[in-house]
Design a protein around this nucleic acid. Structure first.
Ligand code: FES
Ligand code: FES
Lengths: 154, 154
DNA sequence: TACATACTTGACAATTATAGTAAGGTATGC
DNA sequence: GCATACCTTACTATAATTGTCAAGTATGTA
């Protein structure tokens, strides 16, 4: 029952972007440095995030990425789904998968269904704003020394 | 965010055992046939389930496995944890793992922590009894034709 | 006692998914 | 026209998962 590190990286990178972008584009190089995530790997992530319309890119020198919407409109669940493709705990909940046509007789199906809903519901109840709020407050308190971000490995 | 099929098999097998055992031991061969799970694989699962004290074994001819406790005292979460070892969505929540010592500064940590609690909480809120109750009722209605069990692939 | 049943246990192969690397291309501002 | 930084595909190494094999041990029954 593990979330891929890809998804963890994506959320961390998005929080970082959200925290350090004040309207201006943030380069992946920066995020890579701060979050200690390989640049090439970040590129892959943001390729997906862009396709998922969570971020917008600005090419050329001085370019980078910007949130496609405001912080409060971007849910953690969205980010995870975008980079993971699937959030369902079991295969038979996947759309387009015909391996599970006997749901009516399956006693365990409802368990996984309920679990999937809980997971999605929880992750969708949290926005980037929720995550950056605390750091911003701290940041303001400490007089702009710019060290409130998450740089850990988890 | 996938549950291993091992865990899915384990839950299905336990539901099957719970449903067909009326105090008497149920052989893995039977379960294997009904649930279409490879016998050798079941053996591995039940090795773990026995270590986890969720089932008890009876050796020799006519032997098999019996629930170690009553249905209502066996939670789905327990079964999953027993065969999976870990239910945490991210590594930094694991005990004994020292890779995550900067939690205080990590903005995403609380998300995964909350998620883990939800998952565990939900799976622990469901017992084997909850899952077999419906099938038993149907079984009784249909006059003991013994076909109420889950035989699906999911 | 002999035998069949069925649990016990460890080792191992095949497959798949993940994490990470590499490399070359494209757009754009200065 | 050059440096920056995004864009995209391909590939590899590693790990986990799934499933198989095989050789045991215990025990009830004939
Ligand atoms: S049929 Fe979907 S879980 Fe069994
Ligand atoms: S430190 Fe645990 S999730 Fe970041």
């Amino acid at each position: 029952m593990r979330l891929s590190t890809r998804a963890q990286y994506a959320v961390r990178a998005m929080v970082d972007l959200s925290l350090y972008s004040q309207g201006r584009p943030v380069s992946l190089k920066e995020i890579s440095r701060r979050e200690e995530i390989p640049l090439n790997y970040l590129e892959q992530l943001f390729f997906r995030l862009k396709k998922g319309q969570i971020v917008t890119s600005v090419r050329g020198p001085g370019g980078g990425y910007v949130l496609a919407r405001e912080e409060s409109a971007i849910k953690v669940g969205e980010i995870v789904v975008t980079v993971e493709e699937q959030l369902n705990p079991v295969a038979c909940l996947d759309e387009g998968d015909r391996s599970c046509q006997r749901e009516a007789r399956c006693l365990t199906h409802t368990v996984w269904q309920g679990l999937g809903e809980r997971i999605k519901g929880f992750l969708d109840s949290i926005t980037l704003e929720d995550l950056t709020r605390g750091a911003r407050a701290r940041h303001a308190d400490e007089g702009n020394n710019g060290n409130g971000a998450c740089r850990t490995a988890g």
